[in-house]
Design a protein around this nucleic acid. Structure first.
Length: 546
RNA sequence: GGCCUUGUGGUCAAGCGGCUAAGACGGAGCCCUCUCAAGGCUCAAUCCCGGGUUCGAUUCCCGGCAAGGUCACCA
């Protein structure tokens, strides 16, 4: 069979680049020894979730801790899955979390190794597919979907491995006449790889994350060019990661099973194989068992969800870092002043098994991270959230910057040896300051003592309250008022004879606290009152009387 | 079902033939204390099972079991 003639008939394109041109146009990158080139290669289906951020972070850290390049490639070979605005959304979402690309789709550097949209790279793929055809390493297949389904049905019935291989690869060895006859009829066709592999041969392969794994040779005549002339993922992956000069392909472990195909593809194309690192996916518990995080099933894991809940971006990143490299936490504890980007990230330290997403842990990291902000920094963060997600009232409250900062300084314990860690995320943090504003101060007084005692305590304390008192003077007055209302002013006295009192100082303070804040718990009451001011404090005390 | 991967406390995990098996989150308790938070201290809780190899296995080998992934003209 005249393969050259057949190739020209199957791929008649006139302006295909020559293979040498491609090599020249996309030469090996000039980077320092050890620099890694990584990429994020999403299909433009919109919405990206925490799992994507997790692997993006692994890519980004690997590139940037080695002085390499991290780029964005859009795998838009499947027209059906395309969603408008998806690319911008990916870039924007990642940017929110501080993850930026060095080059790629919609990013400066488009000229470097682009185009970065696979649809725009069609001529390159087709040139290589044509070459494979000419070399007898690929062939056209005219099977219809129904025929393929039938093959699969028979294979399943016979408990054989499904797929297009061996005797089931019906078009693999068709005669010239049969092929041209099909062509004459105008039947649609795909181009398949003429696999040279043998499933009985196994190799050990070194994965950058998983370590040593065994891979079986591929014997599937996989489709490399679909009937619309666009490549499948496998083929595009080999061509792109070669010409974009990716050094380390970090991708989800769901790709592990197609690794044999990729190995063969690189081999027949004559490309050196990049290194691979297959990450384990983030899991979640669903109905008692673990399950991979899914776009479809877990919308609450959408990155927009975290934005709306007001998670601090850096906190989410740090949480992800603790899962990515388990020694990160220890490092961060030892280097509290250093940015996470200073951490010596390593793919080989990544876990081998899927981690369960742990909200408790995220919250802990988040509180810790947020506690490091200055009150002004916290104001900026919360205000950013309020502007986008807050209520009318929230926005009005945040108009008064100085006042809010004063409150935040108290809530955060600024100036104390150890900060408080009350604020976990913006949504919850903003609620924490509601009681400092009269319009959102909606107390449900739940005093634990009788009304008469409450009134006595409140009156006695109000009579002596002076906003110019310092903390100890304030507390002394509280004790005096407590004694007047029948409480023990000293804890030791109370312990000796609890029956003699209505309660101890804490109980007395609680009454005032509830009157002022509406809650039995709050940060330092003396400071709360001074922030509110004498007038409002006394008004609240008066309003709380039974 | 075939193939691949994984299997240390509730969760994330150090560990890499020899110790009372780190640490973090969560839980319990104590201290501190005007409450809460923070902080300090303490406690409970783990090597999937069965065979080997070995003087000795969480660690190595084999076999189970369980979980996850994958078997498309989707990525």
């Amino acid at each position: 069979m005249d393969l050259k003639k057949l190739a020209a008939r199957l791929i008649p394109d006139e302006n295909l680049p020559s293979l040498e041109e491609c090599e020249r146009a996309y030469p090996p990158r000039k980077l320092n020894e050890g620099a890694e080139v990584t990429r994020l290669a999403p299909s433009p289906t919109g919405f990206i979730h925490l799992g994507n951020l997790y692997s993006a972070l692994a890519d980004e850290r690997t590139a940037h801790t080695t002085g390499g390049i991290f780029y964005l490639r859009i795998e838009d070979t499947d027209e059906k899955r395309k969603v408008e605005g998806a690319v911008e959304s990916v870039i924007r979402s990642l940017d929110y979390f501080g993850i930026n690309f060095d080059e790629g789709a919609e990013i400066d550097g488009e000229n470097a190794y682009g185009p970065y949209y696979q649809r725009r790279r069609a001529p390159i793929y087709r040139a290589f597919a044509k070459d494979l055809l000419e070399r007898g390493l690929a062939y056209p297949c005219f099977c219809t979907e129904e025929e393929l389904d039938e093959i699969r049905r028979v294979q399943t019935e016979n408990k054989e491995i499904t797929g297009y291989y061996g005797k089931y690869a019906v078009w693999r060895d068709k005669t010239e006449e049969e092929v041209y006859a099909a062509l004459e009829k105008g039947l649609p066709f795909v181009i398949r790889l003429k696999s040279q592999g043998d499933v009985n041969i196994k190799h050990t392969f070194r994965d950058a994350i998983k370590g040593s794994i065994t891979v079986t040779e591929n014997n599937q005549d996989v489709v490399i060019l679909k009937s619309d002339g666009i490549p499948t993922y496998h083929f595009a992956h080999a061509v792109d990661d070669h010409f974009m000069r990716t050094t380390l392909v970090i991708r989800g472990e769901e790709w592990l099973s197609s690794l044999p195909i990729h190995i063969e593809l690189f081999k027949v194309l004559g490309f050196p194989l990049p290194r691979y690192g297959h990450t384990c996916s983030l899991m979640k518990v669903d109905g008692g068992t673990k399950r991979k995080l899914s776009k479809r099933k877990d919308p609450e894991l959408s990155l927009d969800f975290y934005r709306a809940a007001g998670y601090y971006p850096q906190a989410v990143i740090k949480y992800l870092m603790t899962i990515l490299n388990s020694n990160f936490e220890e490092w961060a504890a030892k280097n509290p002043e250093k940015d996470y980007t200073a951490f010596p990230f390593s793919v080989s330290k990544m876990g081998k098994s899927g981690a369960l997403f742990d909200l408790d842990k995220l919250n802990d990291v988040s509180r810790d991270e947020l506690s490091k902000l200055s009150p002004e920094g916290m104001y900026e963060f919360l205000n950013g959230w309020v502007k986008e997600f807050g209520t009318e009232a929230d926005r009005a409250h945040f108009e008064n910057r100085e006042y809010v900062i004063k409150i935040l300084a108290l809530i955060m314990g600024a100036g104390q040896k150890k900060r408080r860690k009350d604020i976990e995320r913006a949504e919850q943090g903003v609620r924490l300051i509601d009681y400092f504003f009269d319009d959102t101060f909606t107390p449900e007084y739940s005093f634990r003592t009788d009304d008469e005692t409450v009134n006595k305590m409140l009156s006695a304390f109000a009579r002596t309250y002076d906003e110019s008192d310092d903390n100890s003077a304030w507390f002394a007055k509280l004790k005096t008022a407590a004694a007047a209302a029948g409480f023990a002013s000293e804890n030791s006295e109370y312990k000796l004879n609890p029956e003699a009192f209505k309660g101890n100082v804490s109980d007395a303070a609680e009454i005032v606290r509830i009157a002022i804040t509406g809650s039995p718990n709050s940060p330092d009451l003396c400071t709360v009152m001074s922030i509110l001011g004498e007038q409002r404090s006394l008004a609240r005390i008066a309003a709380a009387k039974r």
